[in-house]
Amino acid sequence: MPWNLYLPISGNATNILLLLGLGGGVGFLSGLFGVGGGFLMTPLLIMAGIPSTVAAATDSNQIVAASTSGTFAHYRLGNVDMKMGFLLLIGGVLGGTVGVQFIKVLRAMGNADFVIKVTYVIMLGVIGFYMFVESLQSMRKSTPEEAKPREPQKPSVYARLVQSLPWQMRFEKSGVTLSPIMPLILGTFVGILAAIMGVGGGFIMVPVMVYMLRMPMHVVVGTSLFQILFTCINVTFMQAVSNHTVDLVLAIILLIGSTLGAQFGVKVSRRLKADQLKILLASIVLLVMVQMLVGLVWPPHLLLGFKGGH
């Protein structure tokens, strides 16, 4: 087997074709669905035998590379709300730092793997289920008369709460007015999750911006990428310094695979309908979630394991 490569941080040899394939596969889905592949990459790396703490930290490093080109492209198109992005970023950096320290404590206690897996099962379960139901509904209601604009409604409790927060300010690019506390808190929340799960947080950040900050979609993608880039830079640095779990070699291999895979994904996505894509993605997300859940519920072969996931 001449295709094995020794990964010193993981402390083991792994098949380079498997890693390129994983990167390529996730990149393909990423290009196909237009979402970040981070949330799929970490669980797949764990399944491939990479210690979960190394998988999460390395995935953050890989996302730095992947989001660099995306942010740049969106910035040139004027799709980045810098003001909102910076506020989310401050929250993200705070949250990322807290998250990394949290993982450090959990590793010392021996339950880091468990928390990473449970967080994944919950997040993948919620998002997968939501996407599945939503796309199923929109497939059923795809008749033109259903697409009528909705009647103006009474502001919800959430909207009133958001409006009652102090220091309301205008975000020109996004066309919204709200308190800077909102993006700060939401950014912190996403930052914590990003550190624990080793993801950019795009799949949490995008719904947060659309549904909770009410930003238009084209600005959401650009701003999300901008925020993800910096959150992941922070998480990568913190993981490297605190936990020594960033595997640079692994990150570069995954990146090459994912960039190439994304090109094919983008081409294939043009031939599929949006709802079909969503259902497909939701199914994949739910499949990964079920696989991880089975691992948590099924009695383990051995009742003893090494501390820290190694």
Binding site: G36, G70, A73, L255
Partner: peptide, 17 residues
């Protein structure tokens, strides 16, 4: 990561994941 990402982005014109 930034340099590799930028090079890949340039090669594929920002089509990366």
């Amino acid at each position: 990561a930034i340099v590799v990402g930028a090079i890949m982005g340039y090669l594929f014109k920002g089509g990366g994941g």
